[in-house]
Amino acid sequence: MVQPKIIKLVDGEKGNIIKITDLQLDGVMRRRLLDLGFIKGAQVEVVRKSPLGDPIAFRVSQTTIALRKEESSKIEGELISNGE
């Protein structure tokens, strides 16, 4: 068994699927992200980057949500697919 690779959402490449393991955010933003489906165990797909590189759009809970790197760098998960 290979250890699953843990990466931050911000470091995901287009097509990567990441299973969230940790959210290092607090307060209102944490709650907002939880409401949107960025919960532990959720699978998130990296959809695309904005033309200037930030924000990045993610597919989560059947919707597409864009996050700035300030937030997406604080969400970690196991890389479970490269999208190939």
Binding site: D35, L36, G37, S61, Q62, T63
Partner: peptide
């Protein structure tokens, strides 16, 4: 209907 998972929430 196309994103019920979040909507049910």
């Amino acid at each position: 209907a196309t994103s019920l998972e979040r909507n049910f929430n």
